[in-house]
Amino acid sequence: MKQKMVLRFPAAVVEQPFTYHLIKDYNLMINILKANINPRMEGRMVVEISGAEDDFHRGIEFLQSSGVKAFPLEQEIAWVEERCTHCGACVIICPAGALVLERPSMEVKFLNEKCIICEHCLKACPARAMEARF
C-alpha cells in the first residue's frame, strides 16, 4: 500500500531518527515531500509511505507509541466549496496539480490525493476558500 501521511513530532522527541527506524525496522519506503524539523521545536513532515499493509500499520503504531502524531494527508488542506467562486486564480499557484480547472465547465476541482500541503493556495485564493485543518 501507499499512503501520504502528515507526521507531527513533539519537541521532546523531534531529534530521534524515526525515518531510519521506519525503513530499517518496518521495511517501509519513505518519500519525504515536505519537512520542517528544527532542534527542540515541534516538527512536521509530509511523507509518502509505501510498503506491505501489515508493516505500514506496525510502523504507524511505532510512531504513535513514541509520541509522534500521524494522520492521513487529506485531513490537512480543505477546499470549502461554498466559499469557492470558481474564479480559477489558484490553478497556476498549485505546484502539485491538486487544484485544476475542469474543461469545458471551467469549474475548479480539488484533488486532495495530489495535495502536498505546500499551503501556497491558502493566501493565493482571493475568496479564502482553502483552509488548513490541523
Binding site: T85, H86, C87, G88, A89, C90, V91, I92, L101, S105, M106, E107, P126
Partner: peptide
C-alpha cells in the same frame, strides 16, 4: 499556463 480571475461558472 493560463488562469482566469473571473468565474466563468458564475
Amino acid at each position: 499556463p493560463t488562469a482566469p480571475l473571473s468565474s466563468y461558472p458564475g
